[in-house]
Amino acid sequence: YGLKALLPLIRREDQSPDYDPSMTLGIDLTPVLQSLGISSNANGRQRVLDTFPSPWVETSRSEVEPRFFVPESFTKIPSVLQSSGSKNPVFNSVQQDHAKISLFQDETLFYLFYKHPGSVVQELTYLELRKRNWRYHKTLKVWLTKDPMMEPVVAPGGASERGSYVFFDPQRWEKCQRDFVLFYNAIM
């Protein structure tokens, strides 16, 4: 019960098989706290249990849908998406609703495109964005359109053009202007 009992823990070199140090003296918890999304500065105490995917990092390979409430103000918005009176706007079925896609702003289309991969709505947004002269870049995996202020210069041989383009950046969620050499076979 005295100090000698601590020696097997303290002596690093001949780590006695008696105790698993990661459970007795423990480990530096910094990476564990980071994996939980717990920031070290106390005042940034962000609750983590509401979006807790799993007790282990190895099994937390995707985010989980947290509890959420559709605020009152989000429902019964009159005459949005051609909804009549107090009925909620719906955008569910391909037959009735697909024409409504032309009512969405660009950003809404980008959201639907990136949020619902491999679905009908991704296809619909792709078609609508093309109608609006956006083009999808196959390798950059981003949408771009010509900068209306400047006509691009077609390269000799006609396989590409150099000009100024507007890209939609899905990471920063904003449009940004770039000078760029565009290869026609890279877009769709």
């Binding site: 698993d20 990661s22 459970m23 918890l29 564990v32 706290l33 994996s35 939980l36 717990i38 105490r45 609750r47 983590v48 249990l49 807790f52 007790p55 282990w56 990092v57």
Partner: peptide
Amino acid sequence: VSVVYKGALRVFLAVANDA
């Protein structure tokens, strides 16, 4: 059991943070 321990540790850390 050591995997159980690791899971328990993360749960207790999350509880210590939230509540």
